[in-house]
Design a protein around this nucleic acid. Sequence first.
DNA 1: AACTCTCGCAACCGCCCCTCG
DNA 2: TCGAGGGGCGGTTGCGAGAGT
Length: 287
Amino acid sequence: MGRPPCCDKEGVKKGPWTPEEDIILVSYVQEHGPGNWRAVPARTGLLRCSKSCRLRWTNYLRPGIRRGGFSDHEERLIVHLQALLGNRWSAIASYLPHRTDNDIKNFWNTHLKKKLLAANHIVSSSSTPPPAKGDWERKLQTDIGLARQALRDALSVNGAAPPAVTVNAGGGDDSAAYALNARDISMMLSGWAAPSGKGAIADGIGAAESALSEVTGAAECSAASSASNSNPVLAPSASASSKATVAGVPPLSAIESWLLLDDSSEPRLALEVEEQLLDVALRNYAF
DNA sequence: AACTCTCGCAACCGCCCCTCG
DNA sequence: TCGAGGGGCGGTTGCGAGAGT
C-alpha cells in the first residue's frame, strides 16, 4: 500500500482559495513563520490540507513573488537553464529571483515549449539533417555560452538595479504582475516584510535587502538540494554549502561556478569542470 | 447573442527524499 | 538500522476567461 494521504480527505476543502482564507493563512504565518504545515489547518481552523496551505503560501502569498510578465531576459534564461538542468523547476526558479517554480513551469508549458516546438519545426522542415555528435557538442557549447552570459547578466550588480522586492501588490501600474489579489493581505505583509528576528520566518524575506545574495544563496540551496540530488557534479556538497551559506558567503554550486568561470583567467579549471559537466550531459543523453 | 473552442494558470496528486525517534 | 511523518518537487488536471464562429 502507498502512503496514507497527508490529511483526512473528509471535510477538506478544495479548489480556489478565498481572500478570507488567504488572510487567515497569512496571519498564521506572520505569527508562527512558515513551517510545521501539518499544524496549520488545526491551528487556524482552515478546512485545507497542510500541503495545500504550504503550496498556497509558497506559490502565491509569500512576499516578494512576482507573477506573469516574463521579460525576454527571463525567458532566455529559462530556456537555457531548462536545457542544462532539465525540468528541475525549483532549481531553475532559484536562478530567477521572485519567481516560483510553479510559475516558471506554467510559463514553460504554455509558452516556451510551444515556441521551441515551432522553432524546431522550422529547423526540421528546412531539410537539415540531424546533427552529428560533433555538431551536437558544438551546439551545446553555443548554448552554454549563452547560458553563461545570461547568468552573468542575472547576477550583474553594476548594471541596472536588481528588481525591487515589494509586497505592495495593490498599488502601481504593474500590479497585475504581482501576487496577492487582496489589498489587505498585501498591507499586512508589507508591515511584516522586514522581520526583526531571524529564523524560518526570514526565509525569502530578508533576501529583499540584497537581490544578489538572494540569487546566489537560493541557487545554492536549491541547486544543491534539489536539482542535483542525483548528480554529484552538480551537487558538490550540500551540507558543506549550507554551512557556508550560514557563514554569510554562499558558495556557488558547481554549475554556477562553471558558468561564471572566466575561461581566459582560469583556462585549466574551466576546462576541467566543463569536461565533467559535459560528461554528465553525455551520460544523461546517451547516443 | 449564444455557443464552442482554446488558452493560461491555480491547485491537486502522487512520488521521493530527508529527518527524527 | 529502520520506519513513520513532514516537506519538496514535478506532472497533471480542472476551471475560468477570452477569442472565434
